[in-house]
Structure formats: C-alpha cells, structure tokens
Amino acid sequence: MEGGVARVVTDLVRAQVAEGFRTVVACPPGGVLAADAAEAGARVHPWPAVRAPGPRLAGEVLTAARLIRRTEPHVVHAHSAKAGLAARLAVRGRVPTVFQPHAWSFEAVEGRAAALALKWERYGTRWSTRTLCVSETERRVGEQAGIAARWSVIRNGVDLQHFAGDDGTARPAAARAVLPMLKRIPPEVPLVVCVGRLCRQKGQDILLTAWPQVTAAVPDARLVLVGDGPDREELIRLTPPGVLFAGASRDPRQWYRAADVVVLPSRWEGMALAPLEAMACGRPVVLSDVSGAGESLPPGHEAFGLVPADDPPALAAALTVLLTNRALRDRLGRTARDHTRATCDVRQTTAAVSGLYQELLNSPQPMTRKRTER
C-alpha cells in the first residue's frame, strides 16, 4: 500500500488511463496506493486484505473473485506476494493473469515459512499467464528456485522529469536549506541519506551497525533515515550518534538532492526504485548486492557502489571512500544521472507493460497450463 510497489502501480495507472484503458485497482482502503491510484484516474475498489497470509485468506480470495467477476477485466495484473497469492487463487487461469512479485516471497522468510512460500510459488505459476520480473536477477532467482514460469523482464523506471537534478556537480546546500531538519547542518558536513520503509527488508539495522565505522573515519558525517515502518522503534533504540529520523516522505526528491551519497542496504529486492530516483537526481549510490542492484548501476560503478548484502564493514568502507572523495562523488553522480536518463525512463516501462498485455490478449496459445510438480 506504500513505497515502491505503490509507486509502480500508480505509474502504470497514469499511463494506462492516458492510453484509454479502463483501469481498476483493488487494494485495502485508506493507504497511499488507494489515494494515488484514484488521483491518477483508476477506479479504486476497497479490498479488505492484510499484509501476510493467514486465517483471513479464504475471505480475501472470495472478495477478490467477486470483484473480478463484477469488473470483468480483460487482464488481471497482481503485484507482490500477497495479492499474487489471492488473485491467482481467485482467477485460476480464467482471465489472462500477470503476476509481478517485486521480490520473491521465499526470500523474505526463513525455515518452514520459506519452504511453504517456495512450494506455493512453484504451484501457483500454473495460474500465471506471465510472470513479470523487474530485473534479470529476479528472474534467475525464481528460475533457480524451480519456478517453471513463462517469464518476462521489464525493468523498473522512474519519472525523469520529476526527479531531474542538476548536472550532478552542484552542491546540495540549496536542497538542505528547504528541509527544516537540515537547516542547522552546515553545507560542508557530509550527508548520507537512506530512503525506504523501516523494515527488515531494507536493512537499516545493517546501516546503523556500520555507521560508527563511518564516523570513526569521517567524524562530522550525518545519516538521515527517510521513511516509516514497523521497525522504527527498534531502529531508534539501536541508533548511534549522528543519525536523524525524518519520517515518511511523499516526495523524497529534496532528500536525494540534499545528500552527498544515497544508500540502500537491502537484504532482498526485485529492483528498488530509490536508487534509480537518487541517480536521476545526480547522486552516487551504495547498494547491497541483491536482485536488481547491479543492473541499476552504470557500468563501472560496481567497484564503488555495490557491497555484499548484510555486511556492515563492507558497507561502511564503501560509504567512507565516497564521503572522503568529492571528485569521485561528482564523477559518479554525473555518470549516474546520464545512465538513468538513457535507460530508466518510466515511460519505457509502462509502454512495455502495455505491450505485454496486448501480446497476451492476441496470443492463440492457452493462457495457463497444468504441469507436473518437480
């Protein structure tokens, strides 16, 4: 209902409405997605569902099935694990169905829960006309896990006009001046910004563990965590000196522009939007090496911007290199901005998704298939 998936859905709605599609969004009421999708032109229907599978699942599937019958869609596009589960159970191949995991459910859990999630993904693919991944690495993870899907890969994109920065060389002092939390921080103070939901996936706890090593080398450095989520109180408890919590932001553009470096230490992803947005603003990024991260970066940036996942010392070392080398930051920022302009336009992403819909509707082949479990 919030974060990257909500932005992806809203971008698709905006483009599809402009193309003349009748676009319906079913989601829990009251969240960012419901409001933004309606503003973008979708017909929003409340779907009372919770985030995780549980005893309410049967009722959620039944409600989804009724909604789908009532709205009579030509294509159902289910985003992320929970909606992917409910929608495929509700439709079961009767309508062309695109499933877009936005990172695999079995990567988010451990032990028995991971085994059950993987078993479902292997089984549920029979009801996916197409499984749409946002990076080649996300597809490979699914394929290596034994998911026998019909695959498509369409990389995430961002609104380049909205996130257009300067030429990548201007200092972030102007952006800091309009953010009340930063007005008392001198422009020369090195600033790292992390934008993301405060949860285990995004790895802010890894970043906080790494931060004392950063400040040992760069004593005046500051870190700002932009976002909210279930781990906020625990993260505050872990917070070392030099860290600020900014809360959620509907538009993080000024935070990217205020930063010297943007970091996202995720434990898993499909392809995160925050690094693309930051690079579009001309800022260098440091990412954990999870699905989509390497594909996000311009060629040659891996040596500076890609670190092993869940590795605080490596994360601290990468941040320290960038914070102590302004010329390197400026060069990487310029290259990042040019790279996103050439490869990460959301208009290309939405056009490719529309093309996928047309391909499915024009296909003479059966929409889904039964198969023998491996």
Rank of each mutant, 00 (worst) to 15 (best):
L235E: 12
Q348L: 06
L118P: 08
F99A: 02
Y357D: 04
L182G: 01
G305D: 11
G41K: 09
V307R: 09
L328K: 11
D231W: 04
D205A: 12
T169P: 00
G196A: 01
A90L: 10
G165C: 06
P48D: 13
T349S: 03
A272D: 14
A327F: 00
P96G: 01
R66K: 13
G41Q: 02
R14A: 15
G84N: 09
G305M: 05
R14N: 08
V17T: 13
D36L: 12
R374T: 08
Q201N: 00
A221H: 12
A278T: 12
R94H: 04
D260F: 05
T320I: 11
L225Y: 07
A103V: 04
M279D: 06
E107P: 02
A40E: 06
L62I: 07
H45T: 14
V141C: 05
P312T: 11
S291G: 00
A164P: 06
E60W: 03
G229Q: 05
G247A: 06
V243I: 08
R326V: 09
L198N: 00
Q348V: 05
W127M: 03
V193Y: 00
G165N: 10
L297R: 02
V9T: 06
E121C: 11
V263G: 02
S152E: 15
L12R: 04
G227Y: 01
R56S: 15
L360W: 05
T125D: 11
L273Q: 13
A81C: 10
I68P: 11
P284W: 06
R232L: 15
G54Q: 08
P48G: 04
P180T: 03
S128A: 15
K202R: 06
A38R: 15
A42C: 11
P308G: 12
V44G: 09
A217R: 13
Q348S: 09
A210M: 03
G294L: 01
A210F: 00
V75F: 12
C281F: 10
E19L: 15
L356W: 01
L238F: 03
D260E: 07
T10S: 08
A327H: 09
A258Q: 01
